[in-house]
């Protein structure tokens, strides 16, 4: 899986491509956590999953884990461009009720709330 990270102030944008599964989930988790640790001011995490075909339970755990981290920071998580399989998984796991789901990065960034 390819992962591209961009930071804009308090926002961290993660663009993923490929499968988020048991093989790629640890790297996904580690790279995002490194950024979060380095920039404690990050309180919005936007994860673009437009190019993610498949998410398994490990991938779901990494998404839930990042949600938990942002919840600790009293921040927000945006999932962008969920494909049907990813959307079903997030829906079944209740993740869709916890995070913000957006169609595109721009719509997600437009919904970013001012810092609480």
């Amino acid at each position: 899986m390819r992962l591209e990270l961009r930071r804009q102030g308090t926002i961290l944008l993660a663009r993923c491509a490929g499968d988020l599964d048991v093989a790629s989930a640890p790297a996904f988790r580690e790279r995002i956590d490194r950024q979060l640790h380095r920039y404690p001011q990050i309180i919005r995490l936007v994860i673009n999953l437009e190019k993610v075909d498949f998410i398994d339970s490990s991938g779901l755990a990494s998404l839930l884990g990042r949600y938990k981290e942002m919840q600790r920071r009293r921040g927000q998580v945006f999932l962008v461009g969920l494909r049907p399989q990813a959307y079903r998984l997030c829906q079944l796991s209740g993740l869709c009720k916890l995070v913000h789901v957006a169609d595109s990065e721009s719509s997600a960034l437009a919904r970013v709330e001012p810092r609480p």
């Binding site: 779901l60 755990a61 839930l64 884990g65 938990k68 829906q91 079944l92 796991s93 209740g94 993740l95 869709c96 009720k97 916890l98």
Partner: peptide, 30 residues
Amino acid sequence: GSPPSYIKRGKEVAVVRGEAPPAGMLPDLE
């Protein structure tokens, strides 16, 4: 965090869904 279950009565099939995070991740579980 589990997929739907199904009740089959003849040719009719009813779906039972739930939307809750899996156990062991979040302290507040609905």
